[in-house]
Nucleic acid binder design. Sequence first.
DNA 1: AGCCCACAGGATAGCGCTGTCCTCGAAACA
DNA 2: TGTTTCGAGGACAGCGCTATCCTGTGGGCT
Lengths: 343, 343
Amino acid sequence: MTTPKNDKNPRTTGRPTLNEVARRAGVSPITASRALRGIPSVAEELAQRVREAASELGYVANPAARALASARSQTVAVVVPSLGNQLFVETLEAIHAVMRPRGLEVLIGNSHYSRDEEEDLIRNYLAYQPRGLLLTGFERTESARRMLESSGIPCVYMMDLDSGAGLHCVGFSQIRAGAAAAEHLISRGRRRMAFVGAQLDQRTLLRGEGFRRALQQAGLYDPALELLTPRPSSVGLGCELFAQLMASHPQIDAIFFGNDDLAHGALLEAMRRGVKIPEQVAVIGFNDLPASSFTVPRLSSIRTPREAIGRRAAELLLALMAGQPIAEPVQDIGFELMAREST
Amino acid sequence: MTTPKNDKNPRTTGRPTLNEVARRAGVSPITASRALRGIPSVAEELAQRVREAASELGYVANPAARALASARSQTVAVVVPSLGNQLFVETLEAIHAVMRPRGLEVLIGNSHYSRDEEEDLIRNYLAYQPRGLLLTGFERTESARRMLESSGIPCVYMMDLDSGAGLHCVGFSQIRAGAAAAEHLISRGRRRMAFVGAQLDQRTLLRGEGFRRALQQAGLYDPALELLTPRPSSVGLGCELFAQLMASHPQIDAIFFGNDDLAHGALLEAMRRGVKIPEQVAVIGFNDLPASSFTVPRLSSIRTPREAIGRRAAELLLALMAGQPIAEPVQDIGFELMAREST
DNA sequence: AGCCCACAGGATAGCGCTGTCCTCGAAACA
DNA sequence: TGTTTCGAGGACAGCGCTATCCTGTGGGCT
């Protein structure tokens, strides 16, 4: 009794098919197909019969057959660079919440911040003929770009806007967000401000760029006060980088961390070393993770609209998939500076 | 120039097909199919020609056609109860790392700790005819159980072992882990120990159960010192529950939190209130999140083998899918108590 | 009364692949 | 040399569904 189904034919699925539903409802298979897809040219009475037959048999359409016959799947693919922090998870949740009620399956790919991995994922997903794609940022290989273009599949780019000319994108300006952090620190009277970034993905670099420009404009920019590392962002790394920065540049009076994880680590390390936050050094993070309003001291941060980006990007993609005219191809959701105890 | 492809037929994909590859390689489609699938009955020279033709055309097999013809997909479905904390993300990563090199797509479903949502997901995924399923825990609806059984699709259960009789499962005993937390606190001389759990999923409850039994055995169990809430675990909730517990039971000398998030919140709240950890109250968490070794004080926790569970579960599923005999249907990966400053 | 049109519903064919025979030639044996 | 075996490669059919065309009926028109 390994397999309860007793089909002799290994090519069949053993599950009820549209034909059986149609026979039970006393209609042709095409009518059944139309009824279950909600195509309005079927009389309501027949449709009702078909729906009943389907539910009695426990019929669920075979997506492979459907995709093969119609040359389009009920699938949307999303590629994010990481699942390791809340950021993209919240965005994914929002995408799911929009797509699933419409019967669209969401394929999730994790590129681990690697262009090559992303290219592989895109190649792979395109084979599934997804109805649409949601990608993160604009940084990708040339051949990925070509595949996307020649596929003709609608695509929405999430998170950044800064170089999204001609594309459909939903996000906020990383550069302006970085600048906002700088302006906030300047408004608090700080003069020797450092930027600490990890991972060094495009968006982190753009935040740093915005921060730098704002400092330059204020005549406060010091290139020695940038600490960048390709290592992935984490609380532990934040401890380490804070210690390093305090050792090499003890005179700094503020730090902008490209990610809240790092800032959390810095707050902990500061506590261990007796560095007073914000009296001696002000600290501001980025993303405003849920924990940031509970740290000691409570962390100032740039709140990013992760849920809204997912939702709006999904809705934009739906409109593109439906061939609707797009009023706003570039949607700026903005960001919000959360000033708390740490600055 | 909306669509670069100029196919008139909307039923075709516009992408190269196996037929074209076969023609280019000068073989029959079946031979091409076999060559690309690595079936050994094809001469190496022919196989080489086919592979070249495929790569020249940029051929990627149509998974829908493949699934339809063979009645099996190249897909494995995973259902986890949450993506909101590191836990399941690390497990998912490990599953991906095992499955993707073998050409298996991983469908990720998030049940949000809801049995009904999980049932929907399972129903939906079964329609895709996945080669296998990876599920979390044993708690599910009766009809989900029936669907799984009658599908005949191999299934591996992750995380818990405590009621996995007769099933293939990979994890550790939540009950024993909870007991280990209790024993650790007892060995530190604590007498009035509380348990705080959120989410109230099966695994959290089992941890509590193990904790309770160990206290009972030591004659130290006090039912008043259990604080349970169905709200999802978070740092903020940890602050709140710690405050609540200290207000209602100021005499406690240790707390076991069912999740590190909660414990992190408790450490922060304790700092705000001047409660000395561990002098006045010892705190131990669960899962040993990466940040736990950096908190102030460093958090004692039960380290759970999340990566190993994903990897081993995936490998076990592969063996089941291949019809191999299973030596160990129940794999106990164990857990590790990380004693740090907070106890 | 005769005509046309609209529309519900059905017949047909095929999406792109693979399971299952089957063929055919060469190697291995008596 | 004749017979058998074996294995590489091909022909065929069909997985379950839907796009497309086609049929037949009823209502509105002249």
